Amino acid sequence: MSHHLKPFEPFTDLMSFDPVRNVEDMLRAFRQPGQWRSDVPAIRLDIDETEQEYDIRADIPGVEKDDIKVEIDGNRVVISAERKQDTEKKRGNTVHSERHWGQQYRAFTLPNPVDDAKAEARYEHGVLKLTLPKKAGAGMHRLDIH
């Protein structure tokens, strides 16, 4: 822990103007394990809406179909996926690896409730395709004022 300690020299710090003096310390705090998870990418979405349904495409490459879960509660949709680490370990000749393991999820709210009984999901070539029909009669109702 002592390798992060720096002697405090007030006059030296005042004499040399360095606007990015403490940026390295700030960035080191973000790289601490468990505080900032930039190694797990977010699930990216495309959402198209028609009068009858929502068509959603979610990029989830490298995940098995059985490791993806979709939950629908009214107009809230949660997509979660778990990428599992291979049991085979080839670390001897690996110079660099950017693969990540773990869970990722994406939650969002749609403008209208979804008819979850008629919803469909397909997973092909790393893309999850959801067809979520709108619940009948769930549109906006305008109230007449008398």
Rank of each mutant, 00 (worst) to 15 (best):
1 M>W: 02
3 H>Q: 10
6 K>E: 13
7 P>G: 11
11 F>V: 13
12 T>E: 12
18 D>P: 06
20 V>M: 06
20 V>G: 03
21 R>T: 03
23 V>G: 05
25 D>C: 09
28 R>L: 08
29 A>M: 14
32 Q>D: 05
32 Q>K: 04
33 P>H: 01
33 P>Y: 02
33 P>V: 10
35 Q>E: 14
37 R>D: 12
38 S>R: 13
41 P>Q: 03
42 A>F: 05
44 R>P: 03
46 D>S: 15
46 D>H: 08
50 T>E: 12
51 E>S: 12
53 E>F: 05
56 I>P: 04
56 I>R: 00
57 R>Q: 13
58 A>L: 01
59 D>Y: 11
59 D>H: 07
62 G>K: 03
63 V>L: 04
66 D>W: 01
71 E>C: 08
73 D>K: 06
73 D>W: 07
74 G>W: 02
75 N>C: 05
76 R>S: 12
86 D>L: 11
86 D>E: 14
92 G>K: 05
93 N>W: 13
95 V>A: 06
97 S>M: 04
98 E>S: 15
101 W>I: 13
105 Y>P: 00
106 R>I: 00
107 A>G: 15
117 A>W: 03
119 A>E: 08
120 E>A: 09
122 R>E: 13
127 V>A: 06
129 K>T: 15
129 K>G: 11
131 T>P: 00
132 L>Q: 05
133 P>A: 03
136 A>V: 04
138 A>D: 02
139 G>R: 00
